[in-house]
Amino acid sequence: MNLSLNKREPVYVQVVRHFKEQIATGKFEPGQEIPSRRELANQFKINPNTAQRAYKEMEEEGLIFTEGNNPSRITRDEKMIGTVRNELIVTAVDQFITSIRPINVPVDELVGLIKEKYKDDEKR
């Protein structure tokens, strides 16, 4: 697991996004145990405080849960996982639209182009 960090965005936000991606793509399965904050800090080469902050954030959002003294786990809430997936897609599409908007392409042409490129990309 590796993470290349952006220097202008809070590290904890980047860690949370990384987890969301893993959850949405199924690399983290529901109920799977996740590393302790110490292990995470080690893996990502970040400050343990930041790892702690990211976990706190994810716990509050319901992405992970902790029972008693056991290690934290990925949520089993399928609806939540769906929401995360949705959120990621919407964010990505939003970004795409923001950058394509100034070019003023008709939607049909755009969709056709997207289909084509998407298939090419999958083949590669």
Binding site: R38, N42, K45, I46, N47, P48
Partner: peptide, 11 residues
């Protein structure tokens, strides 16, 4: 040395 800072050694 940088790894020290993300470890339990300074936690």
């Amino acid at each position: 040395i940088a790894n020290v800072f993300s470890s339990h050694l300074v936690e």
